[in-house]
Design a protein around this nucleic acid. Structure first.
Length: 437
RNA sequence: GGCCCCAUCGUCUAGUUAGGCCUAGGACACCGGGUUUUCAUCCCGGCAACUGGGGUUCAAAUCCCCAUGGGGUCACCA
């Protein structure tokens, strides 16, 4: 075990935290927690044009939502200019860097690559060879006085005594340049671990055209943070057995860079949906109901006068039928709205049939007599009707279902009626009789 | 294009470090069947992969080389 493990997650605030960044953050977090080390959060906002405060806030929020906390920071590179300046001067003095002037971009500083960089020993890839003759001199301080990525990154990692750099393997090609800087600046080399990238479903680099790619989008769609974490953890890492569901604690215990894959993975939404649905089903009724509030309001319904008990019952009743929280609203819309839409096919198939008219009006009359409108009474009542008519239960359940929720699929009919309540149920039946029978 | 990384079912992966226990295991998806008042859940069963070619070896998914394919990177972006 390495002593004094210290890692960092350094997002650049030019957009939302995307799924690849989230996983990088997760692996760093897992590694730090596993080794009882520290995780530093550093905002790399050295691009004055593209960095925004909204992006920073959004990234911080996403990390919190995912439950990834940090021990130091957030540090902002834009507030550490004097520190980089010091290193620039050191390199200038050493003759490792020179000024270059550009009439338009101003005065910049360029690092002279003379160091003979040896192969890097990557914790995931093993030896990676570079032809150092191919590495060209590069800018370390821009005309606006801000450091460039490669430079600020090395200065910070060196000063902050980062022990392991765990980042996407799209950074492999930056590594020899950074190593040259470590040498010139006199810092000890950290260990590198380049993790594979997450590709879109089509195998190309993740981008906007792949639909949802940011953490906030997944939250908006109703994915649970635990499901996202579990799912992305498995994109490039596995505990070594067939276990797929893990709590964060289990992941911390089992996480090891040795078990991180070298090859990139595709993001499979279908499997994420499945995993999310599993997590939803395991959520305690109370938590599920409270998570639902946001989505209920978003759908335009007031949650202030909503009964907790009622919502919990509804959530329990439907929890194994939806894969995301937003999908819950689609399915349970008839329970919230006074106006419902009727599916034409369902109406044709189950309502507009011989005998259904009298069946429904009979049922309506029987239900109206019920003093207690709860599952048991409703079931007894409906069973009585079908027995009396000498028909199978399905012959009543389906037309009834369509009449009260507008479609041929719903949770159990007794529960549905109970949760809808006597008044609404009877109203729906009356409406259906008038409109279709 | 130069340089770099990678390569097991459609997808995520186990197996590769220490070659034999692999007629390659699990999961998602898909296809059948069962349960059920519908849908979903759930249960049972099935389909499906070591990219190709050379080596090394008694033995290769596992080691080596080449080819092919995919990805990354070549900024005063990060």
């Amino acid at each position: 075990m390495t002593k004094n493990v210290k890692v960092r997650f350094p997002p650049s605030p030019t957009g939302f935290l995307h799924i690849g960044g989230a996983r990088t953050a997760l692996y760093n977090w897992l590694f730090a927690r596993h080794h009882n080390g520290k995780l530093v959060l550093r905002i790399e906002d050295t691009d004055q044009v593209r960095s925004t405060n909204e992006a920073t806030q959004s990234i911080l929020e996403s990390l919190q939502w995912l439950g990834l906390d940090w021990d130091e920071g957030p540090y902002y590179q834009s507030q550490r200019l004097a520190i980089y300046q010091e290193s620039v001067e050191k390199l200038l003095k050493q003759g490792d860097a020179t000024y270059i002037d550009d009439p338009e971009k101003g005065r910049a500083v360029r690092f002279k690559v003379k160091d003979v960089v040896t192969d890097i020993e990557d914790l995931i890839h093993g030896k990676i060879k570079f032809d150092t003759a191919l590495i060209e001199d590069f800018i370390i301080q821009k005309g606006d006085g801000f450091p460039t990525y490669n430079f600020a990154c090395v200065v910070d990692d060196g000063l902050m005594e980062i022990s392991h750099i765990i980042r996407g393997d799209d950074h492999i090609s930056n590594t020899p340049r950074q190593i040259a800087l470590y040498h010139a600046l006199g810092f000890d080399l950290p260990k590198f671990a380049h993790i594979p990238m997450i590709l879109g479903e089509d195998g190309t680099r993740l981008s906007k055209r792949h639909g949802a790619t940011s953490a906030v989008e997944y939250r908006e769609k109703g994915y649970l943070p635990e499901a996202i974490i579990n799912f992305i953890a498995l994109l490039g890492w596995s505990p070594g057995n067939d276990q797929e569901f893990m709590t964060k604690q289990e992941m911390i215990e089992k996480f090891s860079l040795k078990r991180v894959n070298k090859s990139s993975a595709r993001f499979d939404t279908v499997k994420l949906d499945w995993m999310n649905s599993k997590y939803i089903r395991e959520l305690p009724a109370e938590k599920l109901a409270s998570s639902l509030h946001y989505f209920i309001e978003k759908a335009g319904f007031d949650t202030n006068h909503l009964s907790d008990a009622w919502l919990q019952k509804l959530a329990e009743l439907y929890k194994e039928r939806f894969k995301t929280l937003s999908e819950f609203m689609i399915q349970t819309y008839p329970f919230f709205s006074n106006e419902i839409e009727y599916d034409n096919k369902a109406v044709e198939k189950f309502l507009k049939k011989d005998g259904v008219s009298s069946l429904i009006s009979n049922t309506h009359a029987e239900l109206k007599e019920l003093k207690t409108f709860s599952i048991k009474e409703i079931e007894d009542c409906l069973r009585k009707v079908t027995t009396h008519q000498g028909i199978g239960f399905g012959k009543l359940a389906q037309p009834l279902r369509v009449a009260i929720v507008g479609k041929s699929a719903s949770a159990g009919i007794f529960e549905t009626l109970e949760l809808l309540g006597k008044e609404k149920s009877l109203n729906r039946l009356e409406y259906a009789m008038k409109a279709f029978l």
